[in-house]
Amino acid sequence: MATDAALRRLLRLHRTEIAVAVDSAFPLLHALADHDVVPEDKFQETLHLKEKEGCPQAFHALLSWLLTQDSTAILDFWRVLFKDYNLERYGRLQPILDSFPKDVDLSQPRKGRKPPAVPKALVPPPRLPTKRKASEEARAAAPAALTPRGTASPGSQLKAKPPKKPESSAEQQRLPLGNGIQTMSASVQRAVAMSSGDVPGARGAVEGILIQQVFESGGSKKCIQVGGEFYTPSKFEDSGSGKNKARSSSGPKPLVRAKGAQGAAPGGGEARLGQQGSVPAPLALPSDPQLHQKNEDECAVCRDGGELICCDGCPRAFHLACLSPPLREIPSGTWRCSSCLQATVQEVQPRAEEPRPQEPPVETPLPPGLRSAGEEVRGPPGEPLAGMDTTLVYKHLPAPPSAAPLPGLDSSALHPLLCVGPEGQQNLAPGARCGVCGDGTDVLRCTHCAAAFHWRCHFPAGTSRPGTGLRCRSCSGDVTPAPVEGVLAPSPARLAPGPAKDDTASHEPALH
């Protein structure tokens, strides 16, 4: 009773807030009518008042009428009001819900409408889902798969039609296919003929059939049928067999079959498995989609049935006599038709004709302190090069084509190399640097090759510096006499390219 009084008091307290929050009759008014909170006449009256005075006034009048009803109607109103779709449509209802007392429970059932309790003993237990329907569909599909699609060729003596089998029958139906081979029951999904010589313990000319048996419980189990008994694959494991010639990621696949039913060829011909030897223990289905393919039931050349050999690369099948050149017997292992072999060759040939990528240039590290003349020119003028003790990398590039010797140069053309002071002394051009340390401070000019250098860098042994005729380390061993002091540049003949010694390969005349 306390809860009923509290709900009535809360409705009177929030009546105006609810009326202002509800700006549309749908969905709240319609939901109240659906849950029998508002009768039909009051529903029509509220809609009429909404058209006349507006939605807030109409709902305020409806809530005032609701306060005169019993506690069950008020409880049902609060339940409908706080439904998710009403809270989404009328956003101003959320503060009312947040301020609702926590001790007021809106989930209690309506009085007088409590459903009768059902004894637990009368409640049926839930049924577990079964796979009976899938099993029945598999039974119905198996006879259809064994139905012949056409008439065999005159040369083929193997013609068999499976008798119709009602689904209610649980007995196995067997077809006489000759040579002791028996087909599987209607619940078998796949059958492959297997030679009895590969099964340990088999006697006589009995041949087993590799099947997948579907049981009534819905589970499946792969086994071997020899005669009327089934054997699990673990009985046929043979770890010492060295003649297993397995197909790549293979499961067994029928390579020879008669049109209309699988079996042995007439005249004692023995149908073979995809792999010879003992049956392997793992009978998992292969991951290669080509091995799941269903080959055609007629020859791809003459479009006739009979004894066919199936290609492992495509769905086509052929007569042995229709092949070019014809085959006398079934080859062992994987067999592919000429079209598949030709496609494989065409895929391999473009790969062989692809040009080989060019090898990157060989990189040879230079000892610290040495650099090529090109690196000396590329440096920024007026700045010493940083990191001189790091190992430089010199790339061996292809030799350029031989060019004509340089033409003779006048001494005026070499004027930018040297600057003559007032006393006739050779001065260095701006930006000249030593080729060893890279520093341009207090550098000297070689009178023979006009290269800038430090005496301490080229002659670290402490050799005394002569007063005139300074030469760098590369030119100090040259027998050519030094030019007379005061000459602007060496003779043009000295600039012609010539053979250089091994220790002077990195010091070429550089223009500054």
Rank of each mutant, 00 (worst) to 15 (best):
Leu63Phe: 03
Gln262Ala: 13
Leu81Ser: 02
Gln213Arg: 05
Gly197Tyr: 06
Pro27Asp: 00
Ala261Asn: 04
Arg132Glu: 02
Gly242Thr: 00
Ala25Thr: 05
Glu17Leu: 02
Ser107Ala: 10
Glu229His: 03
Val80Tyr: 05
Leu11Thr: 01
Gly240Cys: 06
Val118Arg: 04
Gly251Tyr: 14
Ser220Phe: 03
Ala186Pro: 08
Leu106Tyr: 13
Pro95Leu: 14
Gly269Arg: 12
Ser185Gln: 07
Gly218Tyr: 06
Lys111Glu: 07
Ser234Val: 13
Val118Pro: 15
Ala145Arg: 07
Arg113Met: 05
Ala31Cys: 01
Pro162His: 15
Phe100Asn: 12
Asp238Pro: 15
Pro116Phe: 12
Lys111Leu: 15
Ser64Glu: 00
His60Thr: 02
Glu167Arg: 03
Gly228Asp: 11
Ser168His: 13
Ala191His: 13
Gln189Gly: 04
Ser135Gly: 00
Gln69Met: 00
Ala191Tyr: 00
Glu207Val: 01
Thr130Asp: 03
Asn179Leu: 10
Ser169Trp: 15
Asn86Lys: 01
Val118Asp: 04
Lys120Trp: 14
Ala6Met: 04
Ala271Gln: 06
Ala121Met: 13
His30Glu: 03
Ala271Trp: 15
Pro115Val: 13
Pro163Asp: 01
Lys221Leu: 03
Ala258Ile: 06
Ser71Tyr: 15
Pro126Tyr: 01
Val37Ile: 03
Pro119Tyr: 15
Asp36Tyr: 04
Arg127Gln: 08
Phe215Leu: 07
Gly268Pro: 08
Leu66Ile: 08
Val22Asp: 00
Leu106Ile: 00
Gln189Val: 01
Gly155Lys: 06
Thr147Gln: 06
Glu171Asp: 10
Leu87Asp: 04
Ala264Ile: 00
Ile18Met: 04
Lys159Thr: 11
Ala152Phe: 15
Arg203Tyr: 05
Gly208Phe: 01
Arg132Leu: 01
Lys161Cys: 15
Ala170Val: 07
Arg8Lys: 04
Lys161Gly: 15
Gln189Met: 00
Lys259His: 04
Lys253Thr: 04
His30Asp: 02
Trp78Thr: 06
Ser169Gly: 14
Ser168Pro: 01
Pro200Tyr: 02
Lys133Glu: 02
Gln108Thr: 14
Leu122Ser: 14
Ser217Gln: 04
Ser156His: 10
Thr72Cys: 05
Gly180Asn: 13
Gly150Ser: 15
Val188Asn: 06
Phe100Tyr: 01
Gly112Phe: 10
Pro166Asn: 14
Leu10Ile: 03
Gln94Glu: 02
Ala142Leu: 12
Leu177Tyr: 15
Gly242Lys: 07
Phe26Pro: 01
Asn244Met: 01
Tyr90His: 03
Ala258Gln: 05
Ala142Trp: 13
Pro143Ile: 08
Asp70Gln: 04
Val206Lys: 06
Leu11Ile: 03
Lys243Asp: 02
Ala141Ile: 07
Lys165Gln: 05
Pro101Arg: 08
Ala186Ser: 09
Ser71Cys: 08
Lys259Leu: 09
Asp103Gln: 04
Phe230Asp: 06
Ile224Trp: 11
Gly240Asn: 15
Val199Met: 12
Glu88Lys: 04
Asp76Ser: 04
Ala144Val: 11
Gln189Trp: 00
Ala141Pro: 09
Gln213His: 12
Leu47Cys: 00
Lys133Gly: 02
Ala33Pro: 01
Lys165Asp: 03
Val214Arg: 06
Thr147Phe: 15
Asp76Arg: 04
Gln225Leu: 01
Gln262Glu: 14
Leu49Gln: 00
Gly268Glu: 12
Pro95Cys: 09
Gly54Arg: 00
Gly219Thr: 10
Gln189Tyr: 02
Leu66Ser: 01
Gln157Lys: 07
Ala265Asp: 07
Lys111Gln: 01
Gly197Met: 04
Gly91Lys: 00
Lys235Phe: 07
Ala140Ser: 10
Lys161Phe: 15
Ser250Gln: 00
Leu66Val: 02
Asp84Leu: 01
Lys222Cys: 00
Pro27Ser: 04
Leu122Pro: 05
Gly150Tyr: 15
Glu216Cys: 05
Lys114Ala: 01
Glu167Leu: 15
Leu122Tyr: 15
Asp36Gly: 07
Ser64Asn: 03
Thr151Phe: 15
Asp76Met: 15
Pro166Leu: 09
Pro166Lys: 01
Ala261Gly: 10
Val80His: 00
Ala21Cys: 06
Ser250Trp: 09
Ala258Arg: 01
Leu273Glu: 07
Arg190Cys: 04
Phe215His: 07
Leu10Val: 01
Gln213Lys: 10
Ala19Ile: 00
Arg127His: 03
Gly219Phe: 05
Cys223Tyr: 05
Ala202Met: 13
Gln172Val: 12
Lys165Val: 09
Gly260Val: 14
Ser153Asn: 06
Ala73Glu: 07
Pro154Asp: 02
Asn86Phe: 00
Leu67Trp: 02
Ser99Asp: 03
Asp103Arg: 03
Ile18Thr: 01
Val22Met: 00
Ala160Ile: 08
Lys131Met: 02
Phe59Thr: 02
Leu93Lys: 00
Ala19Asp: 04
Leu146Val: 09
Ser220Pro: 01
Gly197Leu: 11
Ser168Leu: 07
Gly219Asp: 08
Glu137Asp: 13
Arg110Leu: 14
Gln212Ser: 12
Arg247Phe: 08
Ile18Gly: 04
